[in-house]
Design a protein around this nucleic acid. Structure first.
Length: 215
DNA sequence: TTCCAGGCAATAC
DNA sequence: GTATTGCATGGA
């Protein structure tokens, strides 16, 4: 079921090349992020994009880059007010500035790939952000369940919609090869698809996935 | 003008 | 244990 959804979405939208680094998507390149700076950038983006559209996140990331602040050392040492100002376009900047400080402190100490547990212990990193960081920054095959994913799967009748995050995550992972490349593409494709069909109510109207092949 | 976005933590029930 | 609420900008 989920494999056929993935296949259909891939046919429709092609490879997405997530996670964007320096504003660039990179379809079929699964080596990105290539270095520690890019890894850090993906993590920062994952925190900034919480309940916020990517366009606003790009503005915040650009501000950080232009100010020379997109590095662990800078974010760790900078004045919190300065940080808030730079990330203002991403919204919730009072909270997110603190979240970035918390994450950066962890990032500087941590050697190698963090565990999900470690990430979840950081104030400001919840399940989706932790999984985004693992999947897109560290290439760990863990699936990212977002609001779009649940919305789409509910509309398609795959889930009820009231399931907990980890239940949906396990359900998806169970039915697919545990491959970080596939997980990256599938999540990105779901977001792309959902922007078309699951952003406005009523959800799922004219979704080509919902017109017969699943039923 | 209203609605929404690639959630999270704190609080209330 | 589950449901609500506050957080905020910028684009459609």
């Amino acid at each position: 079921m989920l494999a056929s959804i993935y296949k259909k979405l891939l046919e429709e939208y092609d490879y997405q090349g997530w996670w964007p680094v320096l504003n660039n998507y990179h379809p079929r390149d699964y080596n990105t992020p290539n270095n520690i700076n890019e890894v850090f950038e993906v993590c920062v983006g994952a925190i900034l994009t919480q309940n916020t559209n990517w366009n606003n996140v790009m503005k915040a990331l650009s501000n950080l880059v232009n100010a020379g602040f997109l590095s662990p050392e800078k974010i760790k040492d900078c004045n919190i007010r300065t940080l808030k100002k730079l990330i203002t376009p991403a919204g919730y900047y009072n909270q997110k500035a603190g979240y970035l400080k918390n994450f950066t402190e962890f990032f500087i100490k941590k050697i190698g790939t963090p565990t999900r547990e470690e990430l979840l212990n950081i104030k400001g990193v919840g399940k989706e952000t932790a999984d985004s960081i693992l999947l897109y920054a560290y290439k760990v095959p863990t699936f990212v369940v977002d609001a779009y994913t649940k919305r789409m799967l509910e509309s398609l009748g795959v889930i009820k919609g009231s399931e907990d995050y980890d239940v949906v995550k396990d359900l998806i992972e169970k039915e697919l090869p545990k491959d970080y490349k596939l997980f990256q593409e599938f999540h990105a494709l779901i977001v792309e698809h959902a922007k078309h069909y699951y952003s406005k109510k009523p959800y799922g109207v004219n979704d080509f996935l919902n017109t017969g092949f699943l039923k």
